[in-house]
Every structure is written in C-alpha cells, then in structure tokens.
Design a protein around this nucleic acid. Structure first.
Length: 253
DNA sequence: ATGCCACACCTTGTGTGA
C-alpha cells in the first residue's frame, strides 16, 4: 500500500496532468492540497471513474484539500484544526485502519505579515487537535507543511536564514508534533539525503536543483512498523505544466 | 534585487504562493 501527498496548485488548471499522473502511478491513496476550488467544482467524476473514493474540503479560489482512496474512506472530518477556521486546510479520514490527516499548512508570507501570525496560531491549534488523537491507533499526518524542518532541507540555508519556512517558531511547532509521538519518516529513513519537494517557478529552481523539503509524512509509533520507504516523484515535477511541488509517497507493507 | 512564474478572479491589474 502507498499514500501520496501532492500539492497540485489548482486541480482544475492541472487536471490533465494530475489524471495522467494517476493513470501512470496508480497510487492507492492520494492526499491533495491547493485544490483552489469549491467542492462542487472538484472533478470528482474523473477520480471516481478511476476507482477512487473521494472526500474533499474545498473553498473558492484558494486552499482546499481532498482524500482519494481505492478503499472506502470512513469517519471523515473537516473544519480543522478548529471549528470555524475560515480557510479549508485540513481533512481527515480513516483508510484501511489508518487515521490519515491531510494538511495544507499556512504559508505565512514573511515574518512581519499577519499571515505569519495566523500560521503560528494555526499550528498551535493543530498541536491541540492532534494531541488527544496521537496514540489512538495507526496515524499519518501528511501534506504541505510549509516548514523546512532543518537547514539540510533548504538548498541554501545561509540565504534562507531564519526566514519564513525556516524560522525557529515554525520549526519548534514542527518539532512539537514530533513530540506527540510522530517521526519525520523521510528524514528517519534517509538521515543524510539532500532531497527537496518544492522548487520555485520564478527562478527555475527545479532546473537548478534549488528547492526546499516542505511536504512531509509524519508517522506515529503504531504505524511505523509498516513503513518501507518515502520517495519523491522528481519525474512528475519535471513534466510540462507540472505543479511547483513534487508528489511524495509513503510506501507501506 | 522582492521581480522573474503560475494561479484565481464578477480578470485586462492585483493578491497570493513559498
């Protein structure tokens, strides 16, 4: 079994590309972020025609997350990490006995922005939401975290310094989730590997190998025994009309 | 150097992303 997280940067603008990727890779479960559409605008029929159950939490223009699964998705919850959050950034469902939490964490723009304040507040609420659920059984938190956990996760750590994605407060929030009993599965499996998941369109970052690792699979102790590997789909990022994020896949027994 | 690209929108410029 495998579970892929994929920030598609608009599911409608990229539908042809996303469907080609699905048809080629045949993933079991996909956690999508940045749908940038209402639930009513989601290309649900195209996914269902390929054998996927679909649960989505969209909004107009921005954000939006969805779960696709070959097996049924039960106990779906949205409106995370607190009821009334105006932005659609979280959805959870149980798939094959795994509680899957799919997140599109706030970007934050820069450390002086109100959006950064909202990001830290959002992460605080996330911690509070996860804490009582972290040991209830096999659980995965995956998605676009918009946090590079360590300097090794940034192409030029000196240049990025403590800017947004790398600030101590963001990294502290990330480590706080690990403190609830989760591991950063990619980094645990590959302690030294330099591997990014997002590259800037503007600077042709992908072509230059200049990216950051911000899309993650956090696995709790009950799920860890099933983990085989985490891989990044570089070929997809290299396609024409690709998202600026690569799909990242957790491989399970 | 804060724009470069890409996306959405009651679009023809502006806000946002990371």
């Amino acid at each position: 079994m495998n579970i892929t997280t994929f920030n598609v940067n608009s599911v409608r603008a990229r539908l042809e590309r996303v469907l080609a990727w699905l048809d080629d890779r045949q993933p079991d479960v996909v956690c999508l972020q940045e749908l940038k559409c209402l639930d009513s605008e989601l290309p649900r029929a195209e996914f269902e025609a390929r054998g996927y159950h679909v649960a989505s939490y969209g909004q107009k223009s921005w954000n939006g997350v969805a779960l696709l699964s070959r097996t049924p998705i039960t106990d779906v919850e949205t409106d995370l990490p607190w009821p009334g959050d105006p932005q659609a950034r979280g959805i959870t469902g149980t798939i094959d006995g795994i509680r899957v939490l799919n997140l599109y964490v706030v970007n934050g723009q820069d450390l002086q922005s109100d959006k950064y304040t909202y990001k830290l507040e959002w992460l605080k609420h996330l911690h509070a939401w996860v804490a009582p659920r972290a040991a209830a059984g096999p659980m995965l938190i995956c998605g676009d975290f918009n946090i590079a956990p360590a300097d090794a996760d940034v192409y030029d750590a000196v240049k990025w310094g403590e800017e947004v994605l790398c600030s101590p407060a963001e990294r502290s929030a990330f480590n706080g989730l690990l403190g609830l009993g989760f591991v950063d599965s990619f980094r645990k499996l590959h302690p030294k590997r330099r591997q990014f998941t997002w590259w800037d369109y503007r600077t042709s970052g992908f072509e230059q190998g200049k990216g950051v690792r911000i899309d993650h699979h956090l696995v709790n102790a009950a799920l860890w025994p099933r983990v085989v590997d985490v891989t990044v789909d570089m070929a997809e990022r290299g396609q024409k009309q690709a998202s600026d994020h690569a799909p990242v896949t957790l491989h399970l027994t």
